[in-house]
């Protein structure tokens, strides 16, 4: 592939990335503002759309691919995703448990007396 066509193919990549990202952003706004989606399922729907859009950004804008030169990038990314998942889901899980097991405020006042 010569230089010129390499450049036009990367312009094409950026443009299709922009189109996908716009589509997914539009879907997120639509889903959160219409009542098409069942209320309690909304967080899941938004999370799926957000993760899809992050994938689009990674592939089309940050050029994370499956080529042999990308192995290290992908491995580091996988490790980052692992840590992010642990931090976010772990915090939510622990804090929800603590909230659930917390003494009602009236009982705390009783003990303080």
């Amino acid at each position: 592939m010569n230089e010129k066509s390499k450049h036009s193919s990367s312009i094409l990549a950026y443009t299709s990335g922009l189109a996908f990202a716009l589509l997914l952003t539009g879907a997120s706004f639509l889903v959160s503002h219409s009542h098409e989606l069942w209320g309690p399922g909304l967080p899941v729907g938004l999370a799926v759309l957000a993760i899809a859009q992050m994938g689009v950004h990674l592939v089309f804008f940050l050029h994370v691919g499956s080529g042999p030169d990308d192995t290290n990038t992908v491995l580091a990314l996988a490790f980052g995703i692992l840590i992010v998942t642990l931090v976010v889901s772990g915090s939510l899980w622990i804090m929800a448990n603590l909230n659930g097991n917390m003494m009602p405020p009236s009982a705390i006042m009783e003990m303080a007396r």
Binding site: T25, S28, S32, P43, L46, A50, M54, H57
Partner: peptide, 21 residues
């Protein structure tokens, strides 16, 4: 700059759009 955009996608979804309904 692209990484900031990725973080904004998460901010937009988790902070702003979750709060709508």
């Amino acid at each position: 700059w692209h990484a900031l955009d990725i973080i904004w996608v998460a901010v937009m979804s988790l902070v702003y759009l979750m709060a709508v309904r």
